[in-house]
Design a protein around this nucleic acid. Sequence first.
DNA 1: ATCGGATTTGTGAGCGTTCACATGTTGTGA
DNA 2: TCACAACATGTGAACGCTCACAAATCCGAT
Lengths: 333, 333
Amino acid sequence: MATLRDVAKVSGVSVMTVSNVVNGRPSVGEATRQRVLEVIAELGYEANLTARRLRAGRSGTLALVVPRIDHPYFGELAARFTDALRPTGRHLVLEQSGASKEGELGALSQARLQQYDGVLLSAVGLQFADVDRLDGGVPLVLLGEKPMPPRFDHVSLGNRAGGRLATAHLLAHGARRVLMLGGTTAPTDGGMGDLRTQGWRDAHADAGVPADPALVVPLAQLEMGWARGVVRGLVTDGPAFDAVFAVTDQVAVGVLAGLRDAGLRVPEDVQVVGFDNLAVGEHVGPGLTTVDPGNDVLVEHAVRLLDRRLAGDAPEAEHVVTPVRLVERGTTR
Amino acid sequence: MATLRDVAKVSGVSVMTVSNVVNGRPSVGEATRQRVLEVIAELGYEANLTARRLRAGRSGTLALVVPRIDHPYFGELAARFTDALRPTGRHLVLEQSGASKEGELGALSQARLQQYDGVLLSAVGLQFADVDRLDGGVPLVLLGEKPMPPRFDHVSLGNRAGGRLATAHLLAHGARRVLMLGGTTAPTDGGMGDLRTQGWRDAHADAGVPADPALVVPLAQLEMGWARGVVRGLVTDGPAFDAVFAVTDQVAVGVLAGLRDAGLRVPEDVQVVGFDNLAVGEHVGPGLTTVDPGNDVLVEHAVRLLDRRLAGDAPEAEHVVTPVRLVERGTTR
DNA sequence: ATCGGATTTGTGAGCGTTCACATGTTGTGA
DNA sequence: TCACAACATGTGAACGCTCACAAATCCGAT
């Protein structure tokens, strides 16, 4: 690989002048610039980003850390961020923190985060303490639901409002026994499950319908297959229900399959609402009614907050909650 | 951030000794090692990966470049690679080359690729020439279907065999007019569409059933929504068909929705087979019959080939094609 | 001629690490 | 007592780049 020095030698100028040309700095004479550019093309020189980063401290690269990229929610989110960042000339790489504790810590090590100008961290699997340990060496914006150290900028979805919206919709359309699938019977980590379940309770209170705790069914995994099996079991052995609020669309797809397995019709026998507004929801079954969590707003704010830090402003941390919106489709009446 | 020098100063040894401790090199006395480790813990020292990479030339980081991470196929693939690589101590970052030409070139620039020890490049949107331009500065394994410069290691799916398998299955189960949705009427770039369509032709030839060219319908986008609309249109205005071979599962999900829109039953009126064996296929409609493209084998070989290059062996490039397998579910009889 | 100022180019150091090698330190046998 | 390993630690340079600053060049105005 050609280096700055090679280019300098061939074009008969100093290394610094070549650097100035490469970086488009103004103080270079037109003739010199042309000559240098020719040599650059000739030698096929490309800047060594590693060296640049070591010296200059920036890399033009941001990272998005997500638990698992094969969860469609994160895939869609990652694509949104990439699209939002591309026009600004920065670029995004994705890191998976993974399910395992070690993978998570590895992804969060200062050593790794240091490599980026800024990090968007989806804190789903992380505990407060894990995140608290990170000393703000790198501009960091947290994404996700859990309570997190307030010194970090933090954008979360309107989980509670969304749960309320979804459940209210079901109750308003005649449901009386709304299964909260993937909820938490007692508050655990203040995460997604807790908040969406709280929204489910809120809606019941609003509507004056008693919220039967037996209808809150936790899920060991928020996966389609798992949810499907659980729903199938609940139809025969569980409490009676005439609607399901699935904690995620992923779960909702499993619910639809499970209800079909059990011979129940949607929405006639059981109504279903999901959460996330995944692309697949539009095309599954009669169309999944779901809560749009405002990912566009999430991305917009996250980028804004990160930019603010990158610009060196260090105002007090902000905590933004996105607005949610119900998307009505065929799984509700 | 603490540096090697800080640690050295505090623990009263030289920088090199600290480096030796950090890298677990053997030539360090036990007492010294302990002291240094203590200081490291005390100062919270973590190695600067950028500096290490600049000096040592390796980073322990591999990259997987995919067109769009929000396509479930790539999400699942990325997760597989991450899982396969984690035990080996290396780690994987994901880059999106994106739909745009510029994004693609950016992701493929030597400058970017240089930052990694090795690169897995999913060459879906790339032309032969784009890839050919890359001079092997970095160990590179190509993934994907298109014809590529033979000097690169290359793993591709058994596209043609898969198309044949899918179509044969339909023909064997009574279908006579199999729509090839997302196929190519004339060979274009030798990519996925061409190959799977060729498989569709193969199966017809095998079965002695005439392959009506009118049944090959290209798709502007391989997306659920788009495919859905096209199918709906074909039911009323297109050639008669009693089965659909969808070029991807993503398309197949759209097909299922489109057929439902048109009031057709699956598999009674129309049978459907997809390609990719995405997780969602199992739970959509009556369960999507699909071709498993052997992603496990893909990953295994890709990692093996990359490791070979990383080890410095430079034997002749290999081109591996994965074995495919039909997964029978409810959308076929 | 001389000067000040703007413009253009060059110099040396250093980012944090690792490499090749030199030096120091200890123990062992003759 | 000395030579010679074997082990332990240290030295200086270098990776390729950018920073702060110094030096050179050019220009018209005095």
